[in-house]
Design a protein around this nucleic acid. Structure first.
Lengths: 211, 211
DNA sequence: GTCTATACATAGATAGAC
DNA sequence: GTCTATCTATGTATAGAC
């Protein structure tokens, strides 16, 4: 591995387990076992290093899940995959990385670029899968896949932060996603007459609903 | 206002608009127009000041909404109130305060106490309202109010962070909550036969569902 | 309770030798 | 590309006068 790569991986690891405030040039360089000045030589600033690190973490994680996501056929399959993704990516530290960058993005323009990249990359990927899965659902032209993808992404972030503070609550919250998936399946299985009723009433109640 | 109170309010404001990294003893004291050393005299450390500030923000906000929350009778009313709460509390800076503390809580034990306090206070309050609202719903013994309260709280946090990065997506996500509320209403209006079917199928699909 | 002054650690960043 | 050395700013925290 080149020094540049060592720094990228040390930055990701430091961000994940020491948080944003602990991700200083010195601590990252120490972990990478290289000289602190090299961060500025290779990346210009600490924020820019963190940005690059987050981008490559996101790219790697997305590459890992792209196939799996493409295979999902049902809403409950999607929830199941989300559950696995959450626990795996959490163990890898990618989740912590993300929450720290998101929080820092509110004030640091460079981190904000990283956060935007990460969020939109995941949102877009989820949207594609959702669009496919919902195509055969009774709710197909009532729900907006883009909106649901944004909701899911935001929820994922929220859950990750929430988990650090109320682990039992976080587990319970994940359980309520199963319920939501089940609800979607039950609605799909109600038969053509009821389905039409549900769809027309929903469209009446939420005029903004679109495809 | 006493110096102590000036510091509390300056800490809250600084945390909200300069973030955790910008909430130093010096910047908070400058905003409060008092001497920096007084933070340590009154609170012991910056983290402890932030903790106290967050606690009083939460108490104040909860007091503001307790009545309104008690008046809500429907799921869509709850979503509507959540929307208002989000925009009002965001304008007040309480939302930013919360997200910063949550992010910092992952590594700082004092901030973690503040975060736990805030999260559980809101979750409990939401749970009570949800329990009341859901009591008359067809889904009453299928959904767990505590789980939904945790989901809502986590989602609120997530949305707030997400909003800083993808404002349009955040608005769309809020829209999908309207859909969810509408769905609950439609299900409630389906008539006794269909309702029984939905309930039994849901319980079959999600054995973990309880009251 | 409040102020001045200051100790001390650590941050980001750069210059210049190698 | 990498290292040593260093500048400068800013952070937390304390001592002691008022």
């Amino acid at each position: 591995m080149t020094t540049r790569d060592e720094l990228l991986s040390a930055a990701a690891a430091t961000l994940a387990d020491a948080g944003l405030s602990g991700a200083s040039a010195r601590s990252i360089a120490a972990r990478a076992q290289v000289n602190q000045a090299l961060i500025f030589y290779h990346f210009g600033s600490v924020s820019e290093l963190l940005e690059a690190a987050v981008r490559s973490s996101v790219d790697a994680a997305l590459a890992d899940y792209r196939e799996r996501l493409a295979d999902v056929e049902t809403v409950s399959g999607l929830v199941e995959l989300a559950r696995e993704l959450h626990s795996v990516e959490k163990a890898r530290g990618n989740v912590a990385q993300m929450t720290q960058v998101l929080a820092g993005a509110q004030r640091d323009a460079t981190l904000a670029r990283a956060a935007t990249y990460a969020i939109t990359a995941w949102r877009d990927e989820v949207e594609v899968a959702l669009r496919r899965v919902l195509a055969s659902s009774a709710l197909r032209d009532v729900v907006d896949p883009a909106a649901i993808a944004a909701t899911a992404t935001a929820g994922f972030i929220g859950l990750s932060l929430y988990e650090g503070v109320d682990p039992d609550g976080a587990e319970a919250a994940l359980g309520s996603l199963d319920l939501l998936a089940a609800l979607a399946e039950v609605i799909d299985g109600l038969g053509p007459v009821t389905t039409r009723v549900v769809r027309s009433r929903l469209r009446h109640l939420v005029p903004a609903a679109r495809s």
